[in-house]
Amino acid sequence: MQRHLLFATTLYALPVLRPLAESIRASGGEAAWFVASSLSPYMRPSERVLRNAGEVKAFAPAAVYSASNWVPHFFPGIKVQVFHGFNVEKRDSTRGHFRIRGLFDLYCTQGPATTEPFQKLAAELGHFKVVETGWPKLDPMFCGDSVTEPDVHPHDGRVVCMYAATFTESLSSAPALFQEISKQVESGKRYWLLTLHPKSDPELVRMYRSLEGPNARYLEAVDLVSMMRAADVLVSDTSSAVSEFIVQGKPVVTFRNRAPRAHMINIRTSDQLEEALQTAMDPPPALVSEIETYAYSIHPSRDGRSSERILAAADALASGQMGALAPKPLNIWRKLKGRLRYLGWTEESLGD
């Protein structure tokens, strides 16, 4: 039986990795988790959580799957990057999505828009492989009604609007849109599903939670896929939720997006929100075409089997089918920071 370790540092990593855990079990493998201490309350009774590096070493995973930008280099097994979101151009490419940190052996990309840049980097550096698999977080998106999920529908036929904002202070729409969304919720014209990034200012979270009632519900990041499936339109900013949502072929209203594209309905002021929502509910053909083109460029898979492809790719690399990798850079400072971060989560010894 092959063993696999799922590594999560933030709340939004759980919905990325849980479909992968289900595929591991379905294939006859064994899955365990290593998570930041802050995530312990969100782990399910059925999920085996390893508490320290000693337990990870004893578990001896063949592969470690990370939805974070880093992974402990001292854990056994090949290191697989499955990403915590899409590339939404929050930063320059040298600091953002395509930054190579020298920690991973395999990058499992979401679609052509990310596969091609990573393949170029792999050819140049040689110490990792790239396979386009699709993104495990979206597997439940395409699994139909068989997926077990919380019921977030209003049950009265109203249009459902989802609101999600990035936590990056300079890009977040949460402060600027609060009053307008409050008015929208109060009117009751549409039903709202609200969420903020787990790293958001607690005061902003409190404000948006206060809108809960007959016309709105606030949910945590672990319920993002359920919210996206239920919503007719997303209101956001420069959040990766924009790309996650749009793969369904549904419209997105963005507020001052850092790199606005033709598949978005981008607004500059809060008083433009109502008109933008009306456009989203009756999108012109050109917008529909742009949405579909963009969706297929970032995530063409629609079969809900990305997790299976990730496991197959990891197995191929671990068994030598992809050939040898070049030595990784030493990265002494990054490895030291990783060990210090680990020590912040556990009092146990690091081991070897």
Rank of each mutant, 00 (worst) to 15 (best):
E55Y: 03
R190C: 00
Q272T: 04
F75T: 09
S319V: 00
A318T: 05
Y208K: 09
H155A: 08
M162Y: 08
P61F: 14
V80R: 07
L103P: 00
C161A: 09
R101G: 00
V56Y: 08
Y218V: 06
I298Y: 04
P300K: 06
S93R: 14
D139Y: 01
G338E: 07
S307Q: 00
K183V: 01
Y208I: 07
F59A: 06
P285Y: 01
R217A: 11
F104T: 06
S23K: 12
Q321R: 15
P41V: 03
R209W: 08
Y163I: 05
K250H: 04
F75Q: 05
E47N: 13
A26I: 06
P117H: 12
R305Y: 01
E169Y: 02
Q248K: 13
R25H: 14
G249A: 15
M227E: 07
P214T: 00
A164M: 15
Q179Y: 03
S243E: 14
A318M: 05
H84Q: 11
M207E: 13
G249N: 14
G338T: 06
G126P: 07
R339S: 11
G85T: 11
G338P: 04
F128N: 07
D271V: 07
Y296S: 01
A295Q: 02
E347C: 13
D156Q: 10
L325Q: 05
N331L: 13
S66E: 05
H4V: 13
G249P: 14
A231S: 15
L103T: 01
Y191M: 11
S173I: 01
L50C: 12
A58H: 04
A216V: 03
F83E: 01
L211D: 07
Q248L: 15
A165D: 01
M322Q: 03
T133Q: 06
A241T: 14
P136V: 11
K79E: 14
L287R: 06
P117T: 13
M43Q: 12
S93I: 15
A53Q: 10
E180C: 02
S210T: 03
Y107M: 13
V233H: 11
F142L: 07
K250P: 04
L224V: 15
E116H: 02
V252M: 08
V205A: 14
E308Y: 09
P150H: 04
A26M: 10
V253H: 02
M228C: 06
S46I: 01
T168F: 04
I310G: 07
V160W: 11
Y163R: 03
